[in-house]
Amino acid sequence: MGSIPLFFRLVGASLGGQARYPASALMLTVGQFLGTGIEVIAVWALFHRFGDVQGWRIGEVALFYGLVNCMFALADALGRGFDVLGTEFLRTGAFDRLLLRPRPLALQLMGNDFRISRLGRLLQGLAMVAFATQQMGIAWTPGAVAIALIAIAGGVALFLGILVLQGTLAFWTVESLEIANVLTYGGVQAAQYPLALYARWFRRVLTFIVPLACVAYYPVLAILGKADPLGAPAWVGLVSPLAGFVFLAAAFGVWRFGLRRYASTGS
């Protein structure tokens, strides 16, 4: 069996195991939907109290919110294995079993625990995209759809890269550090709002270090047909999502470096 068919076989086994407890899977999914719904209320309360924020309307911010949550939901489903690498694999010695299999480690980890519950965040994101479409009258032309899909793909790659880095830390710390959530959940929160609202130093961080702006801010401007208040040309939104794939490649480079440090449990 090739690597890709094996990946889908692993995902199918993971989903099948969760489907044996349908009530639990449903409650976890609904919990994810309602949990992110609280964030939606916070966004609504902000605009309800202050109206437009520096010229940005709630429909525009809803599109940021929706696309970013779709990105993170998919990446979180794929990257669960990296998230629990320390507790479920390194501490128990189960990582050795993965090393003995003649298939890529990353593929095995991504197919290890594909969570149904992440569907709740994904549906929440799609609902916000629909809301933004209604509020702003967005015309989903083939070009706009293509930009959105490329942005989502780049965003999934970026967030997956962050999870890979989080898992790599476990080679030194054994347990995944909560500080990594600054880049995962913190990154989601930061990318939900337009880049132009932030201070200059933070904009640089979100563009050149953890390129969240490249997969969210610039593509959304292209979809909305809105000029960038910061002065970036319109074509940037067409190519900037590629930064997500560059970040993922760099993360796997760090992963290979950390993997060389692994020395098993000694048991």
Rank of each mutant, 00 (worst) to 15 (best):
Q166C: 00
R203F: 05
L212C: 07
R200W: 09
I152A: 15
A243P: 05
L165R: 10
A243V: 03
P229C: 05
G143Q: 14
R203V: 01
F208S: 12
A234M: 03
P142M: 07
P211E: 04
A191L: 02
G154L: 09
C214M: 13
P233N: 00
V220P: 14
P142V: 08
G155K: 15
T141L: 04
V164A: 12
I138W: 07
L177N: 12
A227D: 13
A222W: 06
L169D: 03
A153R: 14
S240K: 00
P142C: 10
T207H: 02
C214V: 00
V210C: 07
F208H: 14
I162Q: 03
A170G: 00
L224G: 10
N181D: 15
A132Q: 08
V220S: 12
A146Q: 08
V182A: 14
D228T: 05
E175P: 01
L230S: 04
L224S: 10
G237C: 06
Q166E: 00
Y193P: 02
T184L: 13
A144S: 12
L169H: 07
N181K: 14
L169T: 09
A180H: 03
Y198T: 05
I209V: 15
G167K: 01
W140P: 07
L158R: 10
L165K: 11
A227K: 13
L221R: 09
R200S: 10
G237Y: 03
Y193R: 12
V164C: 11
L197D: 10
V156M: 12
V188N: 03
G231C: 02
A148R: 15
I152F: 15
G155A: 13
A146S: 13
T168W: 07
V145Y: 02
E175L: 02
D228M: 01
I223Y: 11
A191K: 08
P194R: 08
T141E: 11
A216H: 11
L177Q: 13
L163T: 13
V164W: 13
L177T: 11
P211S: 05
F159C: 03
T133L: 00
R203I: 01
F171Y: 08
V156A: 14
V215E: 14
W140I: 08
F202C: 02
L169Y: 04
K226T: 10
L183A: 15
V210T: 12
V182W: 09
V239G: 02
A148I: 14
T141M: 05
V236M: 04
V220K: 14
G187S: 03
Q134P: 00
R204F: 11
E175H: 11
A170Y: 00
V205F: 13
L183D: 08
L165I: 04
L169S: 12
L177Y: 02
V174C: 01
W201L: 01
G161T: 08
G137M: 01
Q134T: 06
V205R: 02
L212F: 12
A196V: 01
Y218A: 09
V188W: 03
I179D: 03
A151S: 15
V215A: 14
L158P: 06
A144D: 06
L165W: 07
L221G: 07
V205M: 05
I147Y: 11
L212K: 08
Q134V: 05
Q135C: 08
V239T: 08
L158D: 04
V164N: 11
A157Q: 14
I223Q: 10
A132C: 07
T168G: 10
A227M: 09
E178I: 04
R204N: 11
T168P: 06
L242R: 09
Y193V: 10
L163N: 14
V215M: 12
G167N: 01
A222D: 04
V182L: 13
